[in-house]
């Protein structure tokens, strides 16, 4: 990859942001100066605030209910049990059924894979066409797309219901896939457009002189040069689609609910005694996929979210 990226301008490699370029502030001070103690002290306290919920989630999910009722919320379990995890995965009850989160997990997977695939393919082609094959009005559609991404989804909810019903895919996974493809389009198109426009235009011209057409240039020149941005897009979409709640509720039937909806139904359905350990295990399970993506992707995740922000 090194040789691919070395020809790409630095601005493209680090995204629109310069987070990768290292700190730029004033000179570092001596260690253990009062200022430094303040600085690291503040950062430490802030970190505790951010980490506590994760800590509590994990600890609670490993305790038995009696211990939860007795002990304090921050204490690690005296007796570690994985029972809550098992129950959350396969036995916890929503209002409708009692087969746990596993159903929601697999629904989410089934929604996620085609949604990520289609939204990224379409958006990357959009971005490519917008940069290299501009036609009359193409920028107008792009502007509408970007403005559309700021419009509250609520205003488009019902027209899409009608649209999906007419297409015969209302309440199906494919309907939801289409919705994710549509609503992922603005940010991803922006991402790809910005990336492709940072590639040297002469490369595109050279390929045209070499007789490559629209698809030839896309597949043979652009795609191989754009692997990093595709990874960014995948990260963005996996976390975004996995975390969706609203579209899942609106456009699918209860047996097809994605994991987030299932989670909410398990935790917030009031039936008998609340099992906080099971709830936290379920919450953690739902958060696991995006967390894994996040921790595995590191700076690429930052780049993904900043891509939308810098030139939104």
């Amino acid at each position: 990859m090194a040789d691919i990226t070395s020809q790409i301008p630095a601005s493209a490699r680090t995204g629109a942001t310069a987070i990768g370029s290292g700190p730029r502030g004033p000179k570092p001070r001596r260690r253990l100066s009062p200022g430094n103690i303040m600085l690291y002290g503040t950062l430490f306290v802030v970190s505790v605030y951010y980490l506590l919920p994760l800590w509590v989630m994990v600890m609670t999910s490993l305790k038995g209910m009696p211990e939860i009722r007795m002990g304090n919320i921050f204490a690690p379990p005296v007796e570690v049990t994985f029972q809550p995890w098992v129950k959350a995965w396969s036995e916890a009850c929503t209002g409708l059924n009692c087969d746990g989160l596993s159903r929601g997990f697999w629904n989410s997977v089934k929604i996620l894979i085609p949604s990520v695939f289609f939204s990224i393919i379409i958006a990357s082609i959009n971005g490519y066409a917008l940069v290299n094959w501009r036609f009359k009005g193409s920028d107008v559609f792009f502007t509408i797309l970007i403005f559309g991404s700021f419009i509250p989804y609520q205003i488009m909810l019902y027209p899409i219901v009608i649209l999906l019903r007419e297409m015969g895919i209302y309440g199906t996974l494919w309907g939801l896939v289409l919705v994710h493809t549509i609503f992922g389009m603005p940010i991803l198109t922006l991402l790809f457009r910005n990336y492709f426009s940072s590639l040297p235009e002469e490369l595109f011209k050279a390929a045209r002189v070499d007789g490559a057409g629209f698809w030839g240039i896309y597949f043979r020149i652009m795609l191989p040069m754009s692997l990093p941005i595709f990874v960014v897009a995948i990260i963005l979409q996996v976390t975004g689609i996995w975390n969706d709640f609203l579209f899942g509720v609106v456009y699918t039937k209860p047996e097809l609910y994605p994991m987030t909806v299932q989670l909410n139904n398990i935790v917030n359905s009031v039936q008998g005694v609340k099992e906080y350990n099971v709830n936290m295990a379920a919450t953690l399970l739902t958060g696991l996929v995006p967390l894994i993506v996040y921790f595995a992707s590191g700076k690429l995740f930052v780049r993904g979210i900043a891509a939308g922000a810098v030139k939104g």
């Binding site: 802030v46 970190s47 951010y50 919920p53 994760l54 509590v56 989630m57 976390t239 996995w242 975390n243 969706d244 709640f245 987030t260 909806v261 989670l263 909410n264 935790v267 709830n279 936290m280 919450t283 739902t286 958060g287 995006p290 967390l291 993506v293 996040y294 921790f295 995740f301 930052v302 979210i305």
Partner: peptide
């Protein structure tokens, strides 16, 4: 500081 942003609002709300 950024990991909560990767989580679903549902997860955040429940925690």
């Amino acid at each position: 500081m950024l990991y909560p942003f990767a989580l679903s609002f549902v997860v955040t709300g429940l925690v």
